[in-house]
């Protein structure tokens, strides 16, 4: 009996190396484990074993049976793996280098930058206001202290309409309404499109965008303005810039300033963009003129504040590297498409 078991053991060792395919393995299983298989036969013979040997032989048969079962499972697994490998190998290979179809459209770069700036100002506690493009003469001029005789009111500088209104020449046209609505303690930002009756070239458009902000409170000082502008421009330009003020002149503010920031492109060392001065003229600003506050129903003895304009199109050009402002109003879809949705 023992001999028989050992023979079977050897036979299985031999057979298992011959089993290559799924079918071979099944045949092997049937040969040993099937109803008429060697093990079943062996089990039949086992019934005739008597006495002391019974325990030992039983254990031998069991051990052989387990070994065969285990080996067959292993063979099966190995074979499945082999077949899977073969399948994977034969699967159609993807050419991962194929170009992706560029389906995405594009936003005007102004839209992208305006969103960034608007988000920044919201984080600084500003309310954002929308405005009109057509304004009354009062809103555009009188309410912001532009005298009746000011050259800006001339036909050659302003687009006057035949109903007496104007295409707004500056975002300040919204100041009066905004100050009235928000009252004496406010921080408001208002982007908008403006128009000037002038010849169009690479650096001048008759249609351009500005972003204007006002801060009104008690005891606002020039030193507050400098601090604010520096922090704000750091956020807008995403660079550690410094600012400086120079005297400026605008009817809406007194004193008025031209504000320069260290050139973000060369970090103030001087480059083509800043005419090698290291400074970029970026924001006209100033302390809001008492007449403007008065006109909006705010007591200039009690409250004051500052206003600033961002030369927004200029910023867009710096950010995108555009050298012609007219591209921002372009009808050329192929050109515009290159901007994508981020700058």
């Amino acid at each position: 009996m023992k001999e028989k078991i050992n023979e079977l053991k050897e036979l299985f060792s031999k057979r298992k190396t011959e089993a290559q395919t799924k079918e071979d393995i099944e045949a092997l299983r049937l040969e040993f484990m099937g109803k008429k298989g060697h093990i079943t036969t062996l089990m039949g013979d086992f019934r005739n074993v008597l006495g002391e040997q019974k325990r030992e032989i039983g254990m031998m048969i069991n051990s052989l049976k387990q070994e065969i079962e285990k080996t067959i499972e292993e063979l099966k697994a190995k074979n499945e793996q082999k077949e899977m490998d073969k399948r994977l190998e034969n699967d159609k290979k993807i050419d991962y280098t194929l170009p992706v179809e560029d389906g995405v459209g594009a936003l005007n770069p102004r839209t992208i930058l305006q969103k960034q700036i608007v988000d920044l100002f919201v984080s600084m506690g500003f309310t954002i206001e929308d405005g009109n493009e057509i304004e009354t003469e009062y809103n555009n001029f009188d309410s912001v202290n532009v005298p009746a005789t000011h050259p800006a009111r001339d036909m050659q500088d302003t687009f006057w309409l035949d109903n007496g209104e104007v295409l707004k020449t500056q975002t300040s046209a919204a100041q009066n309404r905004i100050l009235r609505e928000h009252g004496p303690k406010c921080r408001v930002l208002f982007p908008g499109r403006c128009f000037r009756n002038e010849a169009v070239d690479a650096t001048h458009e008759n249609t351009f965008f500005q972003i204007e902000g006002v801060v009104v409170d008690e005891n606002v000082s020039v030193s507050n303005l400098i601090y604010f502008m520096e922090e704000m421009l750091k956020g807008v330009l995403k660079k550690d810039v410094k600012v400086r003020l120079r005297p400026g002149f605008f009817p809406f503010t007194e004193p008025s300033f031209e504000l320069d920031a260290t050139c973000p492109l060369c970090a103030g060392k001087g480059c083509g963009a800043c005419s090698h001065t290291g400074w970029l003229e970026l924001c006209p600003c100033g302390m809001i003129h008492p007449n403007v506050l008065k006109e909006a129903g705010i007591d200039p003895e009690k409250y004051n504040g500052f206003a600033f304009g961002l030369g927004f199109d200029r910023l867009v050009m710096i950010k995108t590297g555009l050298d012609d402002i007219r591209h921002l109003n372009s009808e050329n879809v192929k050109l515009l498409k290159q901007y994508g949705t981020k700058i």
């Binding site: 459209g105 005007n108 102004r110 499109r193 128009f195 008759n206 249609t207 109003n329």
Partner: peptide
């Protein structure tokens, strides 16, 4: 789609 800024 592509965004346009056209004249008024």
């Amino acid at each position: 789609a592509v965004e346009i800024h056209s004249h008024i």
